[in-house]
């Protein structure tokens, strides 16, 4: 339908839509997050749902205490290697369609604890992440911005065709490998289906203290 005609109709109180738009409109305005926090970012996540920042304006105030009822997983905080299997299992238990916001430096890459022996270097090693929010911790505005970005992403999803999202495609997996506790590290240390080491050109000199070039 012609966009101009559509906006003209909406001015007259007539809403024209199609199934895909209706579906996306419904989903993007009722993203229910999973009620769990891992570290200090969770405090900002809580703050963003309270009266001052009021995430309820975007239909995402219903924090569900069960993964069975949640659409969105906000990974808010440092993921220790001991906690990582639980996070992945929770993600697996969420019904499709499901989305992940990786909130804060720790959830993206390990953050300030990246070189630690006990910290996972980012949750995207095991589960697909839709939105990354940098910050340590990100402010509630940043989380709301991420939610709006996720809404835009949902709005652009196709109902049919090859570019349709994972949950509409029967061939794509809904569950991802839960890492096992190994003798030295988690096994596997990353899920190759989801994550590849970033491809960068690194020139190293013996005495180069400036790092990578």
């Amino acid at each position: 339908m012609d966009e101009g005609l559509k906006s003209e109709l909406s001015k007259q109180g007539v809403v024209a839509t199609n199934l895909q738009e209706l579906y996306n409109w419904g989903r993007r305005n009722s993203i229910w997050p999973l009620n769990f926090g891992l570290a200090c970012c969770a405090i900002e996540m809580i703050a963003s749902t309270m009266a001052r920042y009021d995430m309820a304006r975007f239909g995402a105030e219903v924090f569900r205490p069960s993964p069975r009822q949640a659409d969105l997983m906000i990974v808010a905080g440092t993921i220790t290697k001991k906690m990582a299997p639980q996070v992945v299992r929770l993600y697996n238990q969420m019904p499709e369609p499901k989305y992940v916001i990786s909130m804060g430096a720790c959830a993206i890459s390990g953050g300030p604890f990246k070189q630690g022996y006990n910290v996972l270097k980012g949750i995207d090693r095991y589960i697909p992440v839709d939105i990354y929010i940098p910050g340590c911790p990100p402010r509630p505005e940043a989380l709301i911005d991420a939610l709006m970005a996720l809404q835009r992403k949902i709005d652009a999803q196709q109902l049919t065709g090859d570019s349709r999202p994972r949950h509409l495609n029967a061939d794509e997996p809904s569950e991802f490998t839960v890492p096992k506790f190994g003798a030295h590290d988690l096994e596997p240390p990353q899920n190759p289906v989801v994550w590849h080491a970033p491809l960068v050109q690194i020139a190293l000199a013996e005495d180069d203290d400036s790092g990578t070039a």
Binding site: V87, N92, E96
Partner: peptide
Amino acid sequence: NFSPSKPGHDKNSIYECGLE
């Protein structure tokens, strides 16, 4: 018509706190 069912081991497990 649109959304295929995707059951799995974790999704069908009874306990829902992330632990086995």
